[in-house]
Design a protein around this nucleic acid. Structure first.
Lengths: 241, 241
DNA sequence: CCTTACAGGTACGTTACCGTACTGAAATAA
DNA sequence: TTATTTCAGTACGGTAACGTACCTGTAAGG
């Protein structure tokens, strides 16, 4: 749990945006959590028990179908929260959500969150804006999946991860990048190799470090940026915290 | 405008689900509209003036980026409504929305809809469920775009269109199918030809007729069906109209 | 230490789809 | 009717990415 005076240390953008007068609906129910790689947060078709407000690390939201096709449909870091369906009045997870890069944050039980949303219009407005931002991200993932080359998609993903990390190191194997992008592991290896030769990243086993973000941005082109800009618009146009 | 007693003739699933006691918030503001092919409903980054509740026809929601890459992220028919961002408290369209197959329905001005959502919890719950259903559809479009073959994606699209039409005729050119799927027009032609030879559809200029839906379902496999099942779950678990 | 497992590099034949573009047929306009 | 536009069929070389697989170096575990 977090007392009101403890909010100063919070990095999570959504928690930051909660108006002071609504804080009692959320703060007392928060529980600090550490989250390891691959730690499961939501399982498809199972009830969502908590929403997680990340401070650090990156979570992946992965859509799965009945024939086990899978692909990432969204990424969540300190800018948002997991458990978007709760905001929409649904108590079941649709997708698989797990930590892609370890970190930590605060979680709140489903009931406390739902009550806060039901009670406070300010909370509802805030959460809905986040849900809208996440929806835009998913739509652009659909666009990138349908239209972008592997290299562009990889660039997009690296930029999104980089935005959510505090260092330039992205601790991930090619294997997991491949799962998220929905491509072959070997294809990721080749693309990363090309980035390395162009001086965009350096690599070592299980890790990749961004050294020239601009280069990566050029590769991603317009496949990167829109959801980020829209999230900014959604939050900046709203009432300040 | 629609009086309460006129609701009997309504096919739109969302309008049907509006509880009688909330009907006054919506019914009086509805305006019947005819909608032609390619008629524009929403333009990216422009304010949304109305939400459309379709009775017939199919609307496409198409994501566009600054380099003019485009792909369909969702389809809307009599089961839903356009203007999802309004439900989320956003007044701007993110995507391009237009009629893909002509039809008709009722539209409501933005302010009336927003007021209804703000006033009535039942309305809010209903609209949020629809938004959640649409979000699931977008996520599965991302999955199909990243993982499915052209033929499977075409099958998925035909099934989604067929669900929303009253006849087996799907009046569309290969060109537009190609835009929606994000593939070459010539690729669509070949795929349709293959469907025709397998007896799934018959074709004539600017039109295609479904004659063996089962065959198309087999091609689509698990890329079709999840969003449909989830929408059913969302609505069937809720309070009846 | 040695063993085992995992991550990553590389290769090769295969395939789906692309860009482009030409053609004829069907619908529409003059 | 004729002219014009739109739509569909087809072709062909090119390429991005696939499935598969093997091999090596690095890290972790006994």
């Amino acid at each position: 749990m977090l007392e009101a005076h403890a909010r100063a240390g919070i990095r999570n953008r959504l928690l930051q945006k909660i108006p002071l007068e609504s804080w009692d609906l959320i703060g007392p129910y928060l529980e600090a959590v550490e989250l390891k790689d691959r730690q499961v947060i939501e399982v498809p078709h199972r009830p969502i028990t908590h929403s997680y407000f990340l401070e650090t690390g990156v979570a992946s939201v992965v859509a799965v179908d009945s024939e086990d096709h899978r692909i990432e449909v969204g990424v969540i870091g300190y800018e948002g929260m997991t458990g978007v369906p709760l905001i929409m009045g649904d108590d079941r997870a649709q997708h698989s959500t797990y930590m892609q890069i370890s970190g930590g944050g605060h979680r709140i039980p489903k009931d406390a969150l739902c009550k806060a949303i039901a009670t406070s219009e300010a909370m509802r407005t805030l959460m809905l804006k986040w849900a809208q931002g996440f929806m835009i991200q998913t739509a652009h993932t659909a666009l990138a999946n349908g239209r972008a080359r592997l290299e562009q998609r990889l660039a997009r993903w690296l930029l999104m991860a980089h935005d959510r990390l505090t260092s330039n190191a992205v601790p991930l194997t090619h294997e997991f990048l491949a799962v998220m992008l929905g491509v072959r592991r070997a294809g990721v290896t080749v693309a990363i190799h090309s980035f390395e030769q162009r001086g965009f990243v350096t690599t070592r086993r299980g890790q990749l470090t961004v050294v020239n973000r601009g280069g990566i941005e050029q590769v991603a082109g317009s496949f990167y940026g829109t959801p980020e800009a829209e999230l900014k618009r959604l939050f900046d146009s709203g009432a300040p915290a």
